[in-house]
Amino acid sequence: MAATEDKTPAVCGCKGIRTCLICEQQNVKKQSVIANNEQIQCDFTYDPLSKLAVRNKHGVQEYLPLPGIRIWENFVTEDEEKDLVTEMDRNMWRDSQSGRRKQDFGPKVNFKKRRVRLGGFSGLPAISRKLVERMKEEPLLAGFQPVEQCNLDYSPERGSAIDPHLDDSWLWGEHLVTVNLLSSTVLTMSLDEGTGEPDKEEVRVAVHLPRRCLVVLYGEARHRWKHAIHRKDIHSRRVCSTFRELSAEFLPGGVQEKLGSELLDIALSFKGVPL
């Protein structure tokens, strides 16, 4: 007997207004997202040397301050990149929003109710110990103690992306640290207030992230500017690891100092498995 064709629709992790290529292909109402996503353009390009956003408008060079970005090129070697991704791929990737796949090494958090549970949290993965020690060689990260690591897998076939957003600042602290692997991409920074021009309600800045770099967002880039990865900027598989530290509320002298100490003891044991 001939095998029957499996016509079960492919599934994704999208919920609510989030979409990816898989669910858009199955839902005509969501297909307009494809066109909207492709039309997103940046006004400025970030220059890591001057630490300014730059554009050429009508033959005149214009500059916009964008403080709070640090890019460390070639943070890992090609061999280290291969080892890191191989180790990630030994674990299960879970479908997440907007065509991404995800691995979480962190506590269970309900941000709306502001609750943190240790649950099955077992720490950051062993392979990240060396990365964290290297991060501390950067003066900006001298005291960096990550309590969460989130691995994300982006694919052009799934239409992977992440919408403009600000990371939580109740639990997570000053520095957002990401290691960019397998391919270069563009981090789009956006500011709702724009540049002050009457016809410009939002300004976008393209921050180019080379393969194997580390990028840190802090200060205004962390708390005032939203950040995103758009679908059009994913051309081949991209894997990244984002590390987050605790806010002052969970550090010595904070109202949740005890819980913060417990979280850090677990995180920095480097015995973690993904939740």
Results as ranks from 00 to 15, higher is better:
residue 123 G to D: 02
residue 157 E to D: 14
residue 18 R to A: 13
residue 206 A to E: 04
residue 52 L to H: 05
residue 80 E to A: 06
residue 17 I to V: 15
residue 254 G to H: 01
residue 218 Y to P: 03
residue 174 E to W: 07
residue 84 L to Q: 03
residue 268 L to D: 01
residue 100 R to D: 07
residue 21 L to Y: 06
residue 146 P to C: 07
residue 226 K to V: 04
residue 121 F to C: 02
residue 2 A to E: 09
residue 151 N to V: 04
residue 100 R to W: 03
residue 164 P to Y: 07
residue 121 F to I: 01
residue 210 P to L: 12
residue 210 P to F: 11
residue 21 L to M: 05
residue 17 I to T: 15
residue 34 I to D: 09
residue 159 G to A: 01
residue 231 R to S: 04
residue 176 L to A: 04
residue 117 R to K: 07
residue 174 E to I: 10
residue 240 C to P: 00
residue 118 L to K: 06
residue 204 R to D: 05
residue 193 E to P: 00
residue 12 C to H: 00
residue 176 L to W: 10
residue 74 N to S: 09
residue 260 G to P: 02
residue 223 H to D: 12
residue 187 L to V: 06
residue 26 Q to Y: 08
residue 269 S to Y: 02
residue 33 V to Q: 06
residue 246 L to S: 00
residue 220 E to R: 10
residue 153 D to C: 10
residue 269 S to E: 08
residue 173 G to S: 07
residue 15 K to L: 08
residue 183 S to M: 09
residue 7 K to P: 04
residue 134 R to W: 04
residue 166 L to Y: 11
residue 146 P to S: 03
residue 31 Q to R: 11
residue 140 L to G: 03
residue 155 S to C: 12
residue 8 T to S: 11
residue 243 F to V: 03
residue 96 S to N: 10
residue 73 E to S: 13
residue 225 W to R: 03
residue 15 K to I: 06
residue 96 S to P: 03
residue 37 N to G: 13
residue 110 N to G: 10
residue 250 F to A: 01
residue 206 A to C: 07
residue 121 F to T: 02
residue 21 L to Q: 06
residue 96 S to H: 09
residue 31 Q to F: 10
residue 131 L to F: 07
residue 6 D to W: 05
residue 243 F to L: 07
residue 189 M to W: 00
residue 223 H to N: 13
residue 265 D to A: 14
residue 272 G to F: 02
residue 222 R to A: 01
residue 7 K to E: 14
residue 125 P to M: 04
residue 79 D to S: 10
residue 37 N to R: 12
residue 193 E to T: 11
residue 127 I to K: 15
residue 121 F to S: 00
residue 141 L to Y: 03
residue 92 M to Q: 15
residue 9 P to Q: 07
residue 97 Q to R: 12
residue 130 K to F: 09
residue 240 C to D: 10
residue 71 I to W: 03
residue 55 R to H: 08
residue 154 Y to H: 08
residue 138 E to H: 09
residue 225 W to Y: 09
residue 51 K to W: 05
residue 248 A to I: 07
residue 110 N to P: 08
residue 61 Q to N: 15
residue 195 T to W: 02
residue 57 K to F: 11
residue 134 R to F: 04
residue 9 P to W: 05
residue 15 K to R: 14
residue 100 R to S: 08
residue 145 Q to C: 07
residue 12 C to Q: 02
residue 167 D to S: 02
residue 177 V to R: 01
residue 173 G to A: 06
residue 256 Q to E: 12
residue 256 Q to S: 15
residue 91 N to C: 15
residue 147 V to H: 00
residue 110 N to W: 05
residue 92 M to G: 10
residue 228 A to T: 05
residue 12 C to I: 02
residue 156 P to S: 13
residue 74 N to W: 07
residue 271 K to I: 06
residue 107 P to L: 00
residue 35 A to E: 14
residue 56 N to W: 12
residue 146 P to I: 06
residue 87 E to A: 12
residue 3 A to R: 15
residue 49 L to R: 11
residue 221 A to Y: 00
